[in-house]
Write a protein that binds this DNA or RNA. Structure first.
Ligand SMILES: [Mn+2]
Ligand SMILES: [Mn+2]
Ligand SMILES: [Zn+2]
Ligand SMILES: [Zn+2]
Lengths: 149, 149
DNA sequence: CCAGAAATTGAAATTCACTTTCATGTTATC
DNA sequence: GATAACATGAAAGTGAATTTCAATTTCTGG
């Protein structure tokens, strides 16, 4: 983690950038924070320790991390996009429309079938996203309980 | 098609609405148009025959059709959402990032595997979307050709 | 330590898709 | 055709995201 931040910093400098406290604070919080965070959420979190950090810097830092491959933009159709760290391998999402919980999953079989589909259409895939919306276990149980009294 | 429009009109009236020329024009164009159309695109198309139709009416009509189940909102992350008619059964999309072509596909095996995933997590699915981004056959060929001279 | 050059910051302005408002026009009903 | 309800569209309003720009910070190297 400390390692990661150093590595990213070095990469930024190698590309002609300079270090900065605000950006460092944003990055640290981002990689510590639970994933799938909005710019607004992250800004509030960062400001607990660095109250003067502007929203713009959070926008810029997350865009930068995404460009460098350390973060992913995701969009669950809520109106604001979310970011997740891109340190571990690809996964897809179950999104609870009641409580907002996001469950990550990997399914190699689905991925294989996706490859077949694209091949069948002469399509050369570069990225994909699979999102399943519905009720997480907790919310499903709750609504079932309510239904039965 | 004429049938469809009549049916929708009847449904609107049954719900306390009234007929309207603008809305009729939008609906007709929408169901004739190729799918995956933006509000802006559809507005321009409608205005070829009804120049006075406002963007707002297109927004409202598409929202209405979506609420009534005759249209779907889709979002390929371009900044503006798209609409498609919802007359035939569910499908997913291959989206060419070079030319914008959208290929629709159905894969029951993938859907089955999705069901397994959700079951494994005690998740009750209500909707999902699977989008694969990349190059369509044409664009893939073109870029391959360029690479080889 | 001290310029000076270049990158970074954040407040404010801007953009853009989309929604809301509201005065006016249309449609249905009696 | 009078009346009430609905639909329309121009204009104003929202809200997320981006751009602008003057001020600040970081780095270099004398
Ligand atoms: Mn994730
Ligand atoms: Mn489609
Ligand atoms: Zn839930
Ligand atoms: Zn293409």
């Amino acid at each position: 983690m400390e390692r990661l931040l150093l590595r990213i910093d070095r990469e930024i400098i190698a590309a002609g950038g300079k270090r900065s406290k605000s950006r460092a604070a944003v990055m640290e919080r981002f990689f510590r924070a639970g994933d799938h965070v909005t710019v607004d959420e992250l800004t509030r979190a960062v400001r607990k320790t660095f109250p003067r950090v502007g929203t713009v810097t959070v926008y810029r830092t997350l865009k930068l991390l995404a460009r460098m491959g350390y973060a992913n933009e995701v969009d669950f159709g809520e109106g604001a996009r979310r970011y997740e760290s891109n340190l571990d391998s690809h996964h897809d999402h179950l999104v609870c429309t009641a409580c907002g919980t996001v469950i990550e999953f990997k399914d190699p079989d689905i991925e294989k079938l996706q490859d077949l589909v694209t091949r069948r259409h002469g399509f050369r895939p570069t990225a994909h996203r699979l999102e399943i919306f519905g009720l997480c276990r907790k919310c499903a149980d709750r609504s079932a309980g309510r239904r039965q009294g």
